[in-house]
């Protein structure tokens, strides 16, 4: 499986396992949007450390996943952007505003707890 999607309380954690093709990125967007509704997730964490690069397409897709998730009632936090990948991302004139990021899973979880006012802990 190229992306492992786990559920923790009110949150979904999508951990990308291998570098993805463009089609797989779009499939992930659709899959996450559907799952958010199905499990009534309030938060979504996407770990992108396994992606070889974050080019203009992937960056835009992550932004559209975040916006789609918000329309479905969930906040999104991206983790695992490596330093060299971040340096490359700066070269594109991308609107990175929809992307909330955290350095690791712990930080992402506490950020989501703040964003959703502890909704994730209520169920746990």
């Amino acid at each position: 499986m190229s992306v492992a999607i786990l559920r923790q309380g009110d949150y979904l954690i999508a951990s990308i396992q291998v570098d993805l093709s463009d089609s797989q990125v779009l499939e992930l967007r659709d899959e996450l949007s559907e799952r958010i509704g199905r499990v009534r997730a309030r938060g979504l964490i996407i770990d992108v450390a396994a992606l070889d690069v974050i080019d203009s397409f992937v960056a835009r897709s992550l932004g559209s996943i975040a916006i789609t998730a918000r329309l479905r009632g969930a906040e999104t936090v991206i983790t695992g952007i490596e330093p060299d990948v971040a340096i490359a991302m700066v070269q594109f004139d991308l609107d990175l505003a929809p992307l909330r990021t955290a350095l690791d899973l712990d930080e992402a979880l506490s950020l989501l707890d703040r964003l959703t006012q502890g909704a994730g802990e209520d169920e746990a």
Binding site: D52, V53, D55, S56, E82, P83, D84, V85, I87, Q91
Partner: peptide, 13 residues
């Protein structure tokens, strides 16, 4: 490593 990532990103585009 950084230059290799910049190159891989440009190749992707």
């Amino acid at each position: 490593q950084t230059d290799a990532t910049l190159i891989a990103t440009a190749i992707s585009e």
